Deep mutational scan, measured.
Amino acid sequence: QGEKVEGLQAQALYPWRAKKDNHLNFNKNDVITVLEQQDMWWFGEVQGQKGWFPKSYVKLISG
């Protein structure tokens, strides 16, 4: 089970394309609201879409 977080935002360092239905698509420089953190994967929201993404593709910009 991941840790729920509030008020964290991350900026995409690279584009990410979903490999599964529960993954989040985003483009480089998109700002993602992080909702949950697990070891290597984070759950977040961007442009009304929610899903999992690899944390190595983003950098935290707040929180």
Rank of each mutant, 00 (worst) to 15 (best):
Gly2Leu: 04
Glu3Ala: 05
Glu3Asp: 13
Lys4Glu: 10
Lys4Met: 15
Lys4Ser: 13
Lys4Val: 08
Val5Pro: 11
Val5Ile: 09
Glu6Arg: 10
Glu6Met: 11
Gly7Ser: 14
Leu8Val: 15
Leu8Asn: 12
Gln9Thr: 11
Gln9Arg: 07
Gln9Met: 15
Gln11Thr: 10
Gln11Pro: 00
Leu13Asn: 13
Leu13Gly: 01
Tyr14Asn: 12
Pro15Gln: 14
Pro15Asp: 09
Pro15Leu: 04
Pro15Arg: 13
Arg17Phe: 09
Arg17Ile: 15
Arg17Ala: 08
Ala18Phe: 06
Ala18Thr: 12
Lys19Cys: 12
Lys19Glu: 13
Lys19Asp: 14
Lys19Ala: 13
Lys20Thr: 11
Lys20Tyr: 09
Lys20Ala: 13
Lys20Phe: 10
Asp21Val: 14
Asp21Gln: 15
Asn22Leu: 05
His23Glu: 02
Asn25Cys: 12
Asn25Phe: 03
Asn25Arg: 08
Phe26Met: 14
Asn27Lys: 08
Lys28Gly: 07
Lys28Tyr: 06
Asn29His: 15
Asn29Gly: 13
Asp30Lys: 01
Asp30Thr: 09
Val31Pro: 05
Val31Arg: 13
Val31Gly: 03
Ile32Ser: 00
Ile32Trp: 00
Ile32Gly: 02
Thr33Tyr: 13
Thr33Glu: 11
Thr33Val: 10
Thr33Lys: 10
Thr33Arg: 13
Val34Trp: 03
Leu35Met: 13
Glu36Asp: 01
Glu36His: 07
Gln37Ser: 05
Gln37Cys: 09
Gln38Phe: 03
Asp39Ala: 13
Asp39Asn: 07
Trp41Val: 05
Trp41Asp: 06
Trp41Ser: 06
Trp42Leu: 11
Trp42Ala: 06
Phe43Cys: 02
Gly44Thr: 02
Gly44Gln: 00
Glu45Met: 08
Glu45Gln: 15
Glu45Ala: 06
Glu45Ile: 07
Val46Gln: 06
Val46Trp: 11
Val46Leu: 15
Gln47Val: 10
Gln47Ala: 14
Gln47Tyr: 10
Gly48Asn: 06
Gln49Phe: 01
Gln49Ile: 07
Gln49Gly: 13
Lys50Ala: 08
Lys50Ser: 09
Trp52Lys: 04
Phe53Met: 03
Pro54Glu: 03
Ser56Glu: 08
Ser56Ala: 09
Tyr57Ile: 05
Tyr57Arg: 13
Tyr57Gly: 02
Tyr57Pro: 00
Val58Leu: 01
Val58Asp: 01
Val58Phe: 01
Leu60His: 04
Leu60Pro: 09
Ile61Phe: 15
Ile61Trp: 06
Ile61Ser: 05
Ile61Pro: 11
Ser62Gly: 09
Ser62Trp: 11
Ser62Val: 06
Gly63Ala: 12
Gly63Asn: 11
